[in-house]
Amino acid sequence: MLYRITVRNADGEKLEIVVEMSEDEVRALAEELRKAGYEVRVEPIPEGEEP
């Protein structure tokens, strides 16, 4: 499935990426980023919607 991941650092800089991963993989990635001090938001992209 496609997911949009938005990551912000302490300075407020934002990075937005689209990935194709399983829900478990995305959850693990988000958890690791949060542990590293980043603010993370994950949104699933519905099938048929443009990323």
Rank of each mutant, 00 (worst) to 15 (best):
D11K: 08
V19T: 08
E49R: 01
E13C: 15
E47K: 10
R4E: 02
R27D: 06
R8T: 14
E20C: 03
E43C: 03
L15E: 10
L2K: 11
G37T: 01
V19M: 07
E20L: 06
V19W: 03
E23N: 11
K35W: 03
E31N: 12
A36T: 04
A36N: 14
E25H: 05
E39M: 06
Y3R: 01
G48T: 15
P46Q: 10
P51I: 10
T6F: 08
Y3I: 03
R27H: 14
R41D: 07
E47I: 12
L33S: 01
L33D: 00
P46W: 14
E20W: 13
M21W: 06
E47H: 14
I5M: 07
V19E: 02
D24K: 05
R41E: 08
M21N: 03
M1R: 06
I45W: 15
I5F: 03
P51R: 00
M1C: 02
E47R: 10
D24T: 10
V7W: 14
A28M: 04
G48R: 02
E43H: 11
N9V: 06
L29G: 01
K35N: 05
E39R: 03
A10L: 14
S22H: 08
K35L: 05
V26T: 03
P51D: 11
R8G: 08
I45D: 13
G12D: 03
E23F: 11
G48W: 07
E50R: 12
I45F: 09
E47V: 09
V7C: 02
E50N: 06
E31G: 06
M21G: 09
E20N: 10
L15F: 09
A10E: 01
L29Y: 15
G37V: 01
V19N: 02
K35T: 06
I5P: 00
R4W: 04
K35R: 07
G12R: 04
G12N: 05
P44L: 12
M1G: 13
E13R: 11
I17E: 03
V42L: 06
E32M: 12
E43L: 11
E20Y: 09
L15Q: 15
I45M: 12
E32G: 14
R34V: 07
V42A: 03
L33Y: 15
G48C: 05
E47L: 06
R34M: 08
E16R: 10
V40G: 01
E31K: 05
I17G: 02
E20M: 06
E31L: 06
E20S: 12
E25F: 03
E25P: 01
R27W: 12
R34C: 14
E49L: 14
E25Q: 08
E16T: 06
R34E: 13
S22L: 15
R8V: 12
P44M: 12
S22M: 09
E32Y: 03
L29I: 03
L15R: 15
G37C: 01
E43P: 00
E47P: 09
A28H: 09
R27N: 09
V18T: 12
L2Q: 12
E13D: 10
E31M: 09
E23D: 08
E32T: 14
A28C: 02
E31H: 04
E43N: 07
P46K: 14
E31I: 05
M21L: 12
K35S: 03
D11E: 06
E32N: 12
I17W: 12
I5Y: 00
M21V: 14
R41T: 12
E49N: 09
V26F: 02
E31D: 06
I17Q: 09
K35V: 03
V26N: 00
V7H: 04
D11T: 14
A30Y: 05
T6I: 14
A30T: 06
M1D: 07
R41I: 13
R27C: 07
R27T: 10
S22F: 09
R8Y: 09
M21Y: 04
D11N: 15
D24L: 14
R8F: 10
M1I: 12
V7Y: 15
N9C: 03
K14S: 13
L2V: 07
K35C: 01
R4G: 01
R34P: 00
G48N: 12
V42D: 00
M21F: 09
K35Y: 04
G12A: 05
V19C: 02
Y38A: 13
P51N: 11
R8M: 11
V42R: 01
L29W: 11
L2M: 13
A28D: 11
E47T: 13
D24I: 07
L29F: 15
V40Y: 02
I17M: 14
E13T: 14
N9T: 04
L15S: 14
P46G: 08
D24A: 08
K35P: 00
E50H: 10
L33Q: 01
I45P: 05
V40D: 00
A30R: 04
E32L: 06
R8E: 08
E23V: 14
P44K: 10
V19R: 15
P44C: 04
M21D: 01
E49M: 07
A30C: 02
V19L: 10
G12T: 03
E32P: 01
L29R: 08
I45G: 05
E43K: 07
L2H: 10
R8A: 13
E49A: 13
E31S: 06
P44E: 08
E20P: 03
V42M: 05
V18Y: 04
A28Q: 12
D11W: 04
L29D: 00
Y38D: 03
G37I: 00
K14I: 13
D11C: 14
V26E: 00
V18M: 10
I17R: 10
D11G: 10
E47N: 15
V40E: 00
A36F: 07
L29C: 04
L2A: 14
Y38P: 00
E31W: 07
E31A: 04
A36D: 07
R41F: 14
P44Y: 06
E32D: 08
R34D: 02
A30E: 05
R8K: 13
V7F: 15
I45C: 06
N9H: 03
R4L: 06
E23T: 13
V7P: 00
M1P: 03
V40I: 04
A30F: 06
E43F: 05
E49Q: 09
E16M: 07
V7G: 15
V18H: 07
E23L: 13
E25W: 02
G48F: 13
I17K: 08
E49S: 11
R4Q: 07
L33V: 02
Y3V: 03
Y3F: 07
G48Y: 13
G48Q: 15
R8Q: 12
D11V: 13
E16G: 03
S22A: 08
V26P: 00
I45N: 11
R27S: 12
V42G: 00
V26K: 00
P51C: 15
E23Q: 07
V7T: 15
K14Y: 07
E20G: 05
A10K: 11
E50W: 06
E13N: 15
I5C: 01
Y38E: 01
R34Y: 05
I17D: 01
R4Y: 07
R27L: 09
S22K: 11
K14R: 10
E32W: 03
K14F: 15
G48K: 10
A30I: 11
E25D: 05
R41Q: 10
V19Y: 05
V42S: 02
P46F: 14
I17H: 09
P46C: 02
R8P: 01
L33P: 00
V40R: 00
